[in-house]
Structures are given as structure tokens and as C-alpha cells.
Simulated assay, not measured.
Amino acid sequence: MIAPNPVFRSLRLHHERDEQGQSSLVAVITPRSGQTLAGLHLIIEEERTSGLGVFTSVPLNDAVTRIPLPTAPGSIRERVADPVRGVLWDAGLFAVYELGFSLSANLSSTVRTVAAARPDEEGYSVALVGDLRNETRVEGRAPLPAATVLHQASVDRARRQYGAERQRWFRNQSADGISALRELIGKVENELLVCDPYFGGDDVQRLVLAIAKPDARVRILASAMHLHRERDNGTTEGQYLDERLVEAMRAPPMNPTEVRVMTGAKAAIHDRFLWLGDRLWMLGSSVNRFGGRGTLMVVVPDHEPVMQDLERVWMESPTLAQWLADHPPKRPVIIAGLDK
């Protein structure tokens, strides 16, 4: 049984030779935000056609660890063990030299100097690719044709499955895009956080009411940049959002909902996000335009640093009721009182 891995996001192994021909395995590990590598050990087990080659265990004290080997490696099995949690990673056997690799260098003495685009930016230089080229190629053992086909088919299936679970693309498909968002939101168990600088009154019906579990908490992070705007009837988008929330509350059960407003001429958060309690989706456009033009929704691979900043902005932002009280509308408005 392999324990869940809360310590690091990825581990990559590759083979290198130094100028004297000494072989080494180089392990590059990326810890998760706020985590350390203390106590982790990388276990290397090598297999050759003649039997076991190298078996070693080395501490992962640094992000990059170099492991000297007596000869070029064959098939390697890599595992990462934690003294408390047990085995965190087991990649199984893979052949280091199966596909080979190539190194190339382009030498150039020409440098392009680019001036700054604006006074508050810095210029930069680019070394242009030259005509003198040096290339070294090490050929690996080509896998059998049947094995290649099966492997590629497996990779393609995994890619399609990953895409279906973690990214969606819509163009000229507004209805399909909104339907996909509702499907995600409808499955929320505990909490929904919507961060959209252009969130408005119609988005309450468009999204919030799609939640199937009535006791799931809803938080909406809107922006003064949008809520200040006047509508055709002379009211503001802030008033309209509050009115639609009041209407939704009159038709219970309505999820406990709180709206906060990012202040300032420009919202602190530019991108649009949906937090579903265990997964953070980034949306390529606001909900009110989602799927009309080419729009991508994708799962954020490492949501922790993003959520930390979203929570910070949430705590710093006033509630919709407070914001409306500080910005009196041109006509009377009923305060929803969702944040009392």
C-alpha cells in the first residue's frame, strides 16, 4: 500500500556522464508549497539481463541529488520512502536507455538588444542562434514495434482521460460551457468559491442555484470595477446583484451565500476561478461570456499558493452589504443581509 503523497509534486530521474565518463543518476524533486524534504530517502534498484545491478538508498536533502554509478544504468526502479508515512512514490521499472537522447548547441556572437516597452520596465538581450552547430547523439535500444504501438496507445488513452477530467475547451458553445460549469457546481459537497471580477446578478441563477446540496456554503468574490457600472435603467450592477440574491432567498432552500467585493479601480484578482472544495478550476473568461469565444477551463495543478492568495483577498474585501452602504445607490435598494 502506497500512502498519499503530501510532500512533493514530482520526481524526475535522468542519466548523465561527466568529462571522465563517470555515470550518474540525477534526481530532481519538487516539494509541495510549505513542505521540506527532511527524512526522505530515494531507493534505487537496478536490473540487468544478468540480474540485479545496483541497489542503494540515498537521502533527498536537496532539490537536486546526484547518485554516482559504476556503469551506465539499465532498467531502474525508483521509490521514495518517508520514515513516518512509508512509501510515497513507486515508479516501477523503466529503461534509462530505451529511447536515447541528443544534445545540440548553436554558437553565436550576435546579440539583439531590445529596449524597454515602457518606462517602468527593463530592456533585455537575446543571443541569436548562429550557423555553427554542434550536435551529439546517443542512440538507445529501439523497442520492438509491437511494444511501441502498445505503449503509444496507452499514452494516448491516458492523455485523453486526463484531458476529460482536467480540462475542457469551448468555442461558439455558450450553452455547453455553462452546462459544464453547472455540472461541476452541482456536485459540490461542502463549499463553492467563485472568483470572477465580472460576476453579476444573472450569474446567481446561471450558477449558484445549480448546487444540489442546499447546505453547501457559497462564497462569491466580485469586484467594485464591475459593480460600479450603471445599467440601462439607471441602477448599478451592485444593486442588481443584491436584488437577484434577495429573489433567490425568497425561494428556499437557498444555500448560505456571502458576497464580497474586491475594491479599487482594478480587481486584485484578474483570472476567474471556481473552488469546489478539493479542486480549483481556472476559467478563461467570465461566467457571463463563458464558452462564446474560444474559452478554456483547466484544473490548477498546484492550487495551494493560489488558494492562499484568494483567501487573503477574501479577508481583505468588504461584504456586498458594507460596500453598498459605503456607495449609496441612486435609488433605494434592499440589502440582502447575507453576511450577517
Rank of each mutant, 00 (worst) to 15 (best):
L11P: 01
A27M: 01
S33V: 11
H41C: 08
I43Y: 04
E45K: 10
S50V: 06
D62K: 11
T65L: 03
L69C: 07
I76W: 06
D82M: 03
P83V: 01
D90I: 07
A91T: 09
N106M: 08
A117D: 15
P119M: 06
L128K: 08
G140F: 00
V149L: 12
H151I: 07
R160V: 09
G163W: 06
A164H: 10
E165L: 14
S179K: 14
L181Y: 01
L184T: 01
I185G: 00
K187H: 08
E189N: 07
C195A: 09
G200D: 02
R206W: 00
L207P: 01
D215A: 09
S223R: 04
M225E: 15
H226G: 00
E230K: 06
D232F: 04
G234R: 09
G234S: 05
G234E: 06
R244C: 12
M249Q: 12
M254D: 05
A268Y: 00
I269G: 05
H270L: 09
D271Y: 00
D278P: 01
G284Q: 02
S286L: 03
G291N: 01
V300C: 07
E311Q: 11
S317A: 12
P318W: 05
Q322W: 03
Q322T: 13
A325W: 12
P329S: 14
K330F: 06
R331I: 13
I335S: 14
G337I: 15
L338W: 14
L338R: 15
D339M: 09
